[in-house]
Each structure stands twice: as C-alpha cells, then as structure tokens.
Design a protein around this nucleic acid. Structure first.
Length: 902
RNA sequence: GCGCGGUUAGCUCAGCGGUAGAGCGCCUCUCUUACACAGAGGAUGCCACAGGUUCAAAUCCUGUACCGCGCACCA
C-alpha cells in the first residue's frame, strides 16, 4: 500500500531523468505536422532562478506540453543569455571579495574567468529548469547560448547588414552614463525615481555689472560647464536682455543670454542655465544656438576641465562646495526643497550622468514603422490585448538606440581602426587596446568579424578592434532566429520560423519584445511570432517587489524542495490573472500541495479496488444516473478547459479541471460509487472511474507534469494500450454527451439539493454524523416525486438515511424537523424533543428570504415595461421563479403554523 | 503633465447587462478503511463615491476620490 501522503521529491527526480534520457522533448522538422514553437526567454547567467523564472517557464511549459498533446510538433528551444552588464557586475562583485578589480586581471583573464563562470552557472540554471519540469531538451547539442559561435555569427551578420544599410552609425550624442558600471546605457536601461532634493536659485550677473539674471537649478555643479543662460523668447521679463553677456559665477568665463522656445516661462525663475554637455534639453538648446559643448564631468563621475578648486571632486562633493562658494560670494539667492525625478541605473541603482559621448547607435525610426504596422494589423497579437497600445506608442516615439557598452563581457563590436589613418584620434592603453576613455574618437571604422588583413585606405596592417561590446539586448533581439542558425539557411530555420508564441514578463516589452519584432521583420522579412503572452511580476503577498534587501524573496527551489514542483506550478498558475502582478506567499502554495495530494489519493482509492491480477479492465461501462451525470460533467470540464486554453486563459483552463476533479468527481461521484464497488457493477464502475481519472490526469498533465505522470504510470497495467508517457498521449477528447446524459445534469442537481438540505438539518440539529435516520419527502408535484425516486438510493447513501418515505400528500410527522428543497417538503423525525425555538427561527429566516424573492418576482411581472421590453425567455424565467417561490412561501407558512399549534 | 490599470467577503482575486462567486482564513461537528494536505455544515458583501443610459447595472457611459504602474527634457 502506498503511503497516505504524496512525496514529490523522489518521483520528480525519477521522471525528470526519464524524460531527458528518452529525449521526450526533442523535435525535428516534420513535413506533415504543424509546428508549435516557443523560444525561451534565455535566463541571464547571473545566479539562481527566481520566482519570476518559475512563473515564466511554467507558463511556457504548459503551452508546449498542451500543444504537443494536441498533436503539434511542439518545440521549446532552450538557452541562456550572457547577460552583459548584469553578469559582469556579478563577476566584479566576486573579484571584489578577493580584493581585486577587473583591471587587475586584464581583459583576457577576466573573460576567461567569466567563461568559466558561464560553465558553472549555465548548467545550474539548466538543472533548475529541469527541476521545474520544463519540457526542454537539455542535452548538450540542443542548448543555445547568446554568446556561442553560432549566435556570434548571427550578431555579426546583423551588425554588418545594418551597417551596410546605414542603419548603424557612430556619433557623438547625449547618452546615459553609469559611473559605477562605467558604461553608456540605452534610454530604457534607465529608471526614474522621485527623490527629495533642492532647487537652488543662483544669480548670474551681467558682464557690465548692470543687473543680473537668476536661474533655478537642481544641479549647481554643472554650472562649471554652462555655456549659456536661456529664457523663453516671449518672456517679457527678459526680452530686452537677450544677446547680452553674463559672467559665469566662480569662473572667469562669459556666457550668452539666449532666447529659446524650449524654456518654460512659468517654471522657476524663467531662466535656465545651459550645460550642453550634461543635460539632454541643454544639449538641444546648445545645438540650436551653436553653443560650445563643455564637458566638466568625467566618465568616472569626477569634475574635470574646470577651475582647480573643483577639479577631481566627485559630483556630490563639487555640488556641496559650489553651493558654499556661491553662498559666500552672495550669488545664492535662495534654496528651496524640491521633489524631482532622478535617473538611476537599472542594473546598479547608481545615479545616471547624462553626458555627450561618441558611441554606436542604431537608427530606429525606419525599423519601428513596420513593427507598428504588425501590431496594429494583428499580425502580432498581445495577450492581454491592453499591451498593444503601449507597444505601438513606444515604437512611435522611439529614439536611436545606443548599442555600445564600455564593458568587457559581451559581443565585441566588429569594427576595426587603422592606427596609421586614424592618427592622433586613437589613444592606446599599455595593453595595446584602444583606451577606454578615448573611444577612438573620430576614427574611421572598418566593419569585419575577423581582423582585416590590411587597411582599405592605406594598406597598413596595424588595425585594432573597437574596445566596446554590444548591448546584451542586441543579441537577444535576434534570438528567435539566431537559435535556428541564422544567417545560415537551415532546415530548422525554414520549418520553425516564425515561432508561435512568446511568453515573457511585461517589464521587458520594450527592452526585448519590441526589438525582436523589429529585427525579425528586418532580417527575416516577418515578425518572429504571432502571439505575445505577457505576464506580471511575482511580488510578495503585500504586493512589494521581492528583493534581497527587503528580505522577502521566496526561493522557488526551496519551495520545490518543501512542497513539490507541481504544487508550486499549480499555485503560481492559479494566481496568474490577466497579466497582472502576482502577490505570492508561501501559504498560497498549500492549495496546490493539497490538490496534488488529492489526486494522489484518488489513485490510491481506485487502486484499492483494482484486482490483484494486472490486466486491462473490460470496455463495459455502467449506466446509472450518476454515471451519466459524471460523464457529462467531465465532458463539460474538458470543453471549458480547452476553450480557455485557446484564449490563453491558462488559470481558467486549470481551474475547470480542478473543480471537476475535486468538487464533482471526488465529492460526489466517488462517494456515490463506493457501495457499488462491492457489488455486481464493480468492474464497470471501476472502468468508468479509471477512464475519467486517467483522462483528467492527461488534461492536467501540462499543469502538473510529475504527479500526473506518476499516477498514470501506476494505473497503466489496467489500461488498454497505455501510452509510454502522458506527453505522448493525446489531450483527452470530451466524450459525446447524448440527450440522456445531458438530462442527468438537472436531475442530479435536484437530488443533490435534497441531500444537502438533509445534511444541513442534521448538522443544525446536531445529529451525530455516524447516525442513520429516518426521513420523509413529499411534494404536490407527482412528476418531481418520480424524479426523486430515481435518486432515492443516493439520498439514503449520502445523507445517511436508512428509511426514506417518498409519497405524495405525506403529513408532517410529530417531533420532526422540516426543510424545503425545490418542490419537496422534507421531514426528519427526531428521536427526542425538537428544539422548537431553533426550528422556528430557522424556518422563519427561510420564509423571509422566500417572501422577498417572491415579492421581487411579482413586482417585476407587474411592471408593464419589463414584460414589454425584456426578452421572452427572461420573462418566462421570472414566471417560473415566481411560481416556485410562491409555493415555497405557502409551504413554509403551513409548516410554521403547524409548529405553533403542535 | 499625459497614458494605462485597479477599487467586489478578513486576505488574494474571479464575475463584466438579468436574484453576488472561488481559494485561503474564520466558526461548528467528524480521525466514517482514498485523502484531517480530509469530509459535512455555517457566518461574512450599500460590488469606492456621485450622476446618467436601460424594463433591468457590480457589469455600459460620464465625472470624483484614493491606490498602483508605465511614459515624459520642465531646469
């Protein structure tokens, strides 16, 4: 006999091994089958998987397993992402623990170490995906990495092609610079956060001493790089002053007062200091007025190119000192508290410095246009559909994409510079690389994967590669086709592209999804997928983001250890509603665990009755009311589940099956079937149970792969032609429901109602659960009594009635408790005295409810507007209800009257 | 500032035009040979507020309030 409680761990290990060993998840192009393809959002190799990964991969696994069971050639393509800055930061942290920086190691050694880390961390992640039950073939030849040779070839081809079309360029532009990561970032890698700060009002005096202009700023330190002050051209206060020169405080420079439309009259003092090198708006103003771009903040975040007193100070220190100095000089007019949004690095939370720098960019407008069309035409569909608008709007406002990163871990930019031709523009570090700081300013790049043999201009052979690497999202953008070997025209690429659905969190809609759509259209001629399924972020139970610093992180692997994979998957899925964020807590997992245990116990129950001799059960099926009813319920559940899957409503699909198994199959059918398992119908009833239960296991398999596989396997000996694995079985077809089976549903409803009423009365009058009782049921409706007669056995069984009298015109016996269920009056004779007070209160409450109901129906029927406008079926429904409730009222009144006299 | 979403039982959320639902939690009874990770029964809601449309509104429309999230160069 199996233990009473399911133990997931050993079962999961067993099946995970078997699935991989038998290559259950491998796919190959197959001419006669329609593919269903999902490429995994490759996890970064930054550490262990978190709850978000568990959710993301569970959703994909459900879709992949489901479609495979529907007969599609389903392929879920596994892989990991090198993760650019994120991974480099992890490596740097580990180095820091050794008291080193990456510069101590040098580029080559650092990369060597990072590759070694990939070896370790990559396989840890794959192992975790395996634990999660993912239908990913993880054998060596099948797993992709964004930096392996094939993907490197894809990256190069994309770069080469875009460069050839003039869509990639090098230019000096305003970029976001993270001084901690030491690299440029794209606009979407910057997060905005409100921060309390101050607004400083600073006086700039005119050169000739005749008055001054006061500017308001949140960044006094950038004053050192001011090359103008700007006012709105319509601003009467300043109209007469524009064109005059101002003395820049704390320096000996003179700057111009210019008029520019970008300045708001109403804000601050109406005058703004212009620092073209360190503020995006100022940069634009600078361009319009041909102002000098003066860089005063270095890539390290220190003041530079400025008076000696400030040179070398950090931005923060410089701010403090400048305020002091301005104050001492009497130039600080006032200082007020001010809340504004600051830019932070999404990878390390450091303040971002906007600064002008020479970088590589992709021109986006032309690439975005067809992607917008694809979304608008429905060629790419979103689930939930509300994401379409943000998607197209973001693409509509898109800016050029800065793709160069001044880090080491990533795809090296495939551009080379001739030392001779580039002349003084090139600076070299002692290791023979281009210096990090010079960025080969002004140099002319030659795009090539390998080092070119000779400079195309001078023929010289002294070429050096650009030191920068590409934004990690550059390779991610190619993922849906690079995984199939693009640019090589492989059979896989032909068969699997475009993929079917992309499943990911909404937080990377722009970072990743939008870019995949654009590059798919650009390089492959069509979008990389037709559906995008966006899910929310897994948060803690209070809706807070899980983070190590808050200490509210739930580790999926620990939870798996404790509750089992299926329980985690089930609970996560149950809460994935409408793409919204998911509040998750350990308590929430118990629901899943309990259901897993329920399934396990159904199997135990069935096994108890299975014959010793392991042989398939016969094909004969029982045909009682309950049998027809449960078959109909099963069919309905499968239909509902399937319909929900078609709408990507995975939680609803899961819930339909859950509700069937628990509330109908277990709570009613198994209970009704128990005595029959000791009777002549035994084998037939077992046959039906086995059929419906194994069918449910199949239907649930995409959601809870382990327990279903295990239980199915345990029942195999009794099945005719079982499948080797559930994944190879078809997703169950709903059995045909004929008229008799359809009629069983309302009939059972009526009978179940009677049972519930008797149970309620028993509970309220504290009749011990084990005690059998007598009960009477009567009705003015003979047809109803006939119906109830067909279910008399069920009533007796489930409400523990040994003697059930079912007759028309039965009078209420003395010392009995009454109940009403539909057309039936039910009387339960009590052994001793009845607590009349309790009984009266109970019935009066019931009566009141019925009266209210009845009155409501009558009112509506008397309203001519209702009968005239409402559809006939609705009027009919109310009429029936009116009759039912009226009957109930009169019967209750009668019983109550009798109670008083009795 | 603009946009999007939310506001329903103590908690997390379904329902999106015809008499308010689930899971968890809570209360009572039961360790009845599948399951106490269970069974049976029970309590709990001016469906944020104000208008409107409709025979009928939690559900549609318009506003208001609060909460969350995006986007944005207001120094």
């Amino acid at each position: 006999m199996l233990s009473k409680v399911y133990e997931p761990s050993p079962v999961e290990t067993k099946w995970a091994d078997a699935w991989q060993k038998d290559r259950l998840f491998i796919s190959s192009p197959s001419a006669d089958k329609k593919p269903f393809v999902v490429v995994i959002p490759p996890p970064n190799i930054t550490g262990a998987l978190h709850m978000g990964h568990a959710l993301n991969n569970t959703l994909q696994d459900v879709l992949v397993r489901y479609h495979r069971m529907l007969g599609r050639e389903a392929y879920w393509v596994p892989g990991t992402d090198h993760g650019g800055i994120a991974t480099q930061n992890v490596m740097e942290k580990m180095l820091k623990a050794e008291g080193k920086t990456r510069h101590d190691l040098g580029r080559e050694e650092f990369l060597k170490r990072t590759w070694a880390w990939y070896g370790e961390c990559g396989s840890t992640i794959l192992g975790q995906l395996r634990k999660l039950g993912c239908a990913l073939d993880l054998n060596a030849g099948n797993v992709r990495f964004t930096m392996d040779d094939k993907r490197a070839a894809s990256v190069y081809e994309s770069f080469r092609s875009l460069w050839g079309k003039g869509l990639i360029y090098r230019g000096e532009r305003m970029i976001n610079w993270c001084t901690r990561c030491g690299t440029a970032l794209s606009d979407i890698e910057v997060e905005h956060e409100d921060e309390k700060s101050r607004l400083w009002h600073i006086r700039y005096a005119f050169e000739d001493g005749s008055g001054s202009v006061t500017v308001a700023t949140t960044r006094p330190e950038t004053l050192l790089g001011d090359t103008a002050v700007a006012v709105n051209p319509e601003d009467e206060r300043y109209k007469s002053m524009t064109g005059r020169k101002l003395r820049l405080p704390l320096t000996d420079r003179l700057i111009l007062l210019v008029a520019d439309e970008g300045v708001e009259k109403g804000f601050g003092t109406g005058a703004v200091k212009v620092t073209p090198a360190h503020d995006p708006l100022d940069f634009e103003i600078g361009q319009r007025h041909k102002l000098e771009v003066m860089r005063v903040i270095s890539y390290e975040g220190k003041m530079t190119n400025c008076p000696r007193a400030y040179a070398g100070l950090s931005v923060q220190a410089a701010r403090k000192k400048i305020i002091e100095d301005l104050s001492a000089a009497g130039l600080l007019v006032k200082e007020e508290p001010y809340k504004h949004s600051v830019n932070k690095c999404s990878r390390c939370s450091q303040h971002i410095e906007p600064l002008v720098s020479e970088q590589w960019f992709v021109k986006m407008k032309g690439l975005a246009a067809p992607a917008i069309t694809a979304a608008e035409s429905g060629e790419v569909k979103f689930y939930p559909p509300s994401w379409k608008k943000p998607f197209t709007e973001w693409l509509g406002n898109i800016q050029d994409w800065c793709i160069s990163r001044q880090i080491w871990w990533g795809h090296r930019i495939p551009a080379w510079y001739c030392r001779k031709c580039s002349g003084a523009g090139l600076k070299f570090s002692d290791k023979g690389e281009l210096s990090r700081v010079s960025f080969a300013q002004g140099a002319k790049p030659v795009v090539s994967f390998e080092k070119p043999a000779a400079c195309p201009d001078c023929g010289g052979a002294d070429l050096l590669q650009d030191p920068d690497v590409l934004d990690t999202w550059f390779s991610s953008a190619l993922w849906p086709f690079s995984v199939f070997g693009w640019p090589e025209r492989t059979e896989e690429l032909d068969y699997y592209y475009p993929t079917s659905v992309l499943v990911t969190g909404y937080e990377i809609l722009y970072l990743w999804v939008a870019r995949m759509v654009m590059s798919g259209i650009e390089h492959m001629g069509r979008p990389p997928f037709s559906q995008v399924y966006l899910h929310g972020i897994v948060r803690d139970k209070h809706g807070k983001k899980m983070s190590k610093s808050l200490g509210n992180v739930i580790d999926p692997l620990q939870m798996i250890e404790k509750y089992g994979t299926d329980a985690i998957r089930f609970s996560l899925m149950a809460q994935t509603l409408g793409g919204k964020d998911i509040p998750f807590s350990e308590e929430a997992i118990t629901g899943g665990r309990n259901f897993v245990n329920k399934l396990y116990n159904v199997a135990r129950f069935i096994q108890m009755y299975l014959p010793e001799r392991q042989a398939p059960l016969g094909a004969a099926r029982p045909d009682e009311l309950a049998d027809r009813w449960i078959t109909e319920r099963y069919a309905a559940a499968l239909e509902k589940s399937k319909a929900a899957m078609a709408e990507y409503d995975l939680p609803k699909a899961q819930d339909a099956l859950y509700a069937f198994v628990w509330d109908e199959f277990c709570d009613w059918y198994l209970e009704l079937a128990k005595p029959r398992l000791a009777g002549p119908d035994k084998e037939k009833v077992l046959g039906l149970m086995l059929e419906l239960f194994t069918g449910s296991l199949k239907a649930l398999h995409p959601f809870m792969p382990y327990v279903t596989e295990e239980l199915y396997a345990s029942l195999k000996p009794y099945l005719e032609a079982p499948d080797s694995y559930l994944l190879k079985a078809g997703w169950p077809e709903a059995p045909r429901v004929d008229a008799r089976a359809a009629a069983a549903e309302p009939l059972m409803q009526e009978i179940m109602g009677v049972i519930t009423q008797i149970r309620t009365a028993r509970a309220q009058f504290e009749i011990p659960p084990g005690k059998t009782i007598k009960a009477f049921a009567t009705s003015g409706n003979p047809a109803a009594l006939d119906r109830l007669r067909t279910g008399a056995g069920y009533v007796k069984l489930l409400s523990k009635v040994e003697d059930l009298r079912l007759e028309a015109g039965l009078a209420k016996p003395p010392r009995s408790v009454s109940a009403i269920s539909g057309p039936f009056n039910i009387y339960i004779p009590m052994d001793g005295a009845v607590d009349l007070e309790k009984e009266r209160t109970r019935l009066e409450k019931e009566l009141e409810r019925a009266r209210k109901d009845s009155a409501q129906c009558v009112d509506r029927l008397q309203d001519p507007a209702f009968t005239a406008h409402a559809p006939a079926s609705e009027v009919e429904k109310i009429k029936t209800r009116a009759a039912d409730t009226a009957g109930k009222v009169s019967r209750l009144t009668e019983i109550l009257a009798e109670l008083k006299t009795g």
